[in-house]
Design a binder for these strands. Structure first.
Length: 294
DNA sequence: AATACGTGGTC
DNA sequence: TGACCAAGTAT
């Protein structure tokens, strides 16, 4: 068994069948989901477990059912609603993207890869995901799940390299089914397989539909020997201080004086974090103190 | 290419 | 218990 066209087609068939039977019924996957709903789900899902975004997604879509609704409110509301989802710049980006959709795209999510990619907070992955899931554009969707699935099934490696390489993009493109509908299904299905079965920690090879077609599995699941991802600490970093400051400002009814931050960390760290947040547009300095952008 | 960017759960 | 991980993006 090697990485031949016939091998790929067999994998496609099995994974698509598996997905039809075992894929999760996520709200943004339902037929009634709008491109905007799918767009919001993709931004929320960036570096964030799906289980954590379910509630926030429902609340967000009810409050802002389309781009115009969000654009009509100030960014502060988006940042507050984002609450503790993490990386609050995503909330700011979502608001800015909604504004751009109203201004440049008749209030709609653009059905074009380049136009999607031009939106703030939309990179290669998100453009492809929204293109494929919302508009049926069969672009390769290469997220952390797909990268791991392909690393194992096609390359026989336990995990993907620390960062996305051109070789991986080419591999993902080569693995796309020729039929556009199948290609779009493969995008979700291979992601889902990575999320539910072919997981990072303890892969469920015992229930995997392609265990016997997986180069890694057949080779005896050898341990990863490539470069490790650099460790991303949190305690003691500026990110921690930024997070604490944003939490204070989010929960305040009015602008807060800098003195409200003094318990968060040492003065120099607070100063650096606040400067960064202001530079990022997440915080605004008025005469009354710091508050969220309006 | 490497690094910054939140937050919470898991083993 | 601390490192690892989670549908990445921007610089």
């Amino acid at each position: 068994m090697t990485d031949t066209q016939a091998h790929r087609e067999q994998v496609h068939e099995r994974v698509l069948s598996w997905y039809a039977a075992h894929g999760r019924d996520l709200p943004w996957r339902r037929p009634e989901a709008t491109p905007w709903g799918i767009y919001v789900s993709e931004i929320m899902a960036q570096q964030t477990p799906i289980a954590r975004i379910l509630g926030p997604w429902l609340t967000w879509l009810k409050r802002w059912p389309n781009p115009a609704a969000l654009a009509a409110d100030p960014p502060a509301e988006a940042i507050r609603a984002w609450d503790r989802l993490g990386y609050p710049r995503r909330a700011l980006n979502l608001h800015a993207a909604a504004t751009a959709m109203v201004r440049d795209h008749d209030g709609e999510v653009p059905a074009d890869l380049d136009q999607l990619r031009a939106l703030p907070g939309v990179g290669e992955y998100t453009a492809a995901a929204v293109g494929s899931f919302a508009f049926g554009i069969p672009a390769p969707v290469v997220d952390t799940n797909v990268r791991r699935v392909l690393a194992r099934i096609a390359l026989g490696e336990a995990q993907a390299a620390p960062s996305l390489t051109k070789a991986e993009r080419d591999l993902a493109a080569a693995w796309m089914p020729a039929d556009p509908d199948d290609a779009n299904r493969w995008n979700v299905a291979s992601m889902e397989l990575g999320a539910l079965v072919c997981t990072a920690r303890t892969p469920g090879c015992g229930v995997c539909p392609v265990a016997d077609l997986c180069v890694w599995r057949v080779a005896g699941s050898p341990a990863y020997d490539g470069p490790r991802r650099p460790h991303q600490g949190y305690a003691g970093t500026d990110r921690e201080v930024r997070g604490a400051i944003m939490a204070i400002v989010r929960e305040a009814d009015a602008a807060v004086p800098a003195a409200a931050f003094t318990d968060v960390a040492a003065a120099d760290r607070i100063e650096r974090a606040v400067a960064g947040l202001v530079a990022d547009g997440l915080l605004r300095l008025s005469e009354q103190g710091y508050d969220l952008p309006r």
